[in-house]
Simulated scan of single mutants.
Amino acid sequence: MIKIGLTGWGDHPSIYRTNSTRRDKLFDYSSHFPIVELDTSFYAIPSQQNIEKWVNETPESFKFVVKAYQGMTGHLRDDNPYETRSEMFEAFRQCANAFQSADKLAMILVQFPPWFDCSAKNVQYIRYVKQQLGDFPIAIEFRNRTWYSTDRKHETIRFLKELGFIHTVCDEPQAGVGSVPFVAEATTDKALVRIHGRNVYGWRNSGSTENWREVRFLYDYNDEELTDLANKIRILEKLCKEVYILFNNNSGHHAADNAKTLQRMLNLDFDGLSPKQLDFFEGEF
């Protein structure tokens, strides 16, 4: 089974009704896609009130891929608002449990930064993450190529499989050590594919300009590239039961259209979506 979605639901104008408000966007989104990446949890662990609201606004079968808080993945380095690591993980566990209790949690996405290389220290930290979040399905995403070097790739996959982590397959610019290749391997009955675009310039110049986030994920996949992705995803589907695909190339609002094109290429129909409500006067004539 393959499910397709986007990172976040608040910035995809092509899928909203013309009369939608900001409060309608999640409902509108869930009429098109069965999954979404909750990326706001990377910047701040959401309140129980917000989680309850999101759960209630989505169909019964809708799932969230909840991104791990940046303090848990080392992005904050020493600038962490939580007094202790234990306190931080406990706050995030409460967040994840709220989604899981509502049967809305697809997985937790733990995305490590580019400087998180394949080293004994970092292997031990991944084991610590497992200890802290072991009650939840966890996907690991690397942004450092050393995890997939010729002499370590097999051990990386074996390690993830041994600990029961979901492997995150990435399509991204091939821009040196701070990027990873597309490795179509599954380590559990689920696999996660995150599609970041192929903007090599934006990837290499990350953080060098004020609007680097906009440049980094500015990319529109053409049909040939999406056909190639579709073929790779069909191969990956044979290795596990569920493949979750998330498009993250949305700086130019390309993610939704690229996702819809891939959906057509894979001949997918998603059941249990929110109803598509007609705009005012639509269908009247």
Rank of each mutant, 00 (worst) to 15 (best):
I126K: 07
Q277G: 01
K232H: 14
N211P: 00
M1T: 08
D151M: 02
V55S: 06
P59I: 09
R234L: 15
F280P: 00
L109S: 07
N205L: 10
G202S: 05
T21V: 00
S41M: 04
I35E: 04
K121W: 03
P275L: 15
Y201Q: 12
H12N: 11
A44C: 07
N231I: 07
I157Q: 08
K241H: 14
P114M: 07
A139V: 00
N205C: 11
F270K: 04
T227R: 14
K238W: 13
V123T: 01
H12L: 11
A191M: 10
A255F: 12
Y43Q: 02
A259W: 13
Y219K: 06
D103A: 09
I245Q: 01
V55C: 10
I45D: 06
N80T: 13
E210L: 13
T84K: 03
A175G: 14
G74K: 08
E90F: 06
S20R: 00
Y82M: 02
K104M: 04
A191F: 08
A184K: 06
D189W: 01
Q131D: 10
I2W: 05
E57P: 01
N249R: 07
T156N: 11
V36N: 03
P81H: 12
N144F: 04
D28G: 12
W212I: 00
L38N: 09
C95Y: 07
N50I: 04
A120Y: 02
N267L: 08
H167E: 05
R85T: 07
N231P: 01
I51F: 05
S86E: 15
I126T: 07
Q174E: 11
S30M: 03
R145Q: 04
L262W: 15
S20A: 07
L133P: 02
Y82D: 02
A175C: 14
F136K: 05
S101Q: 15
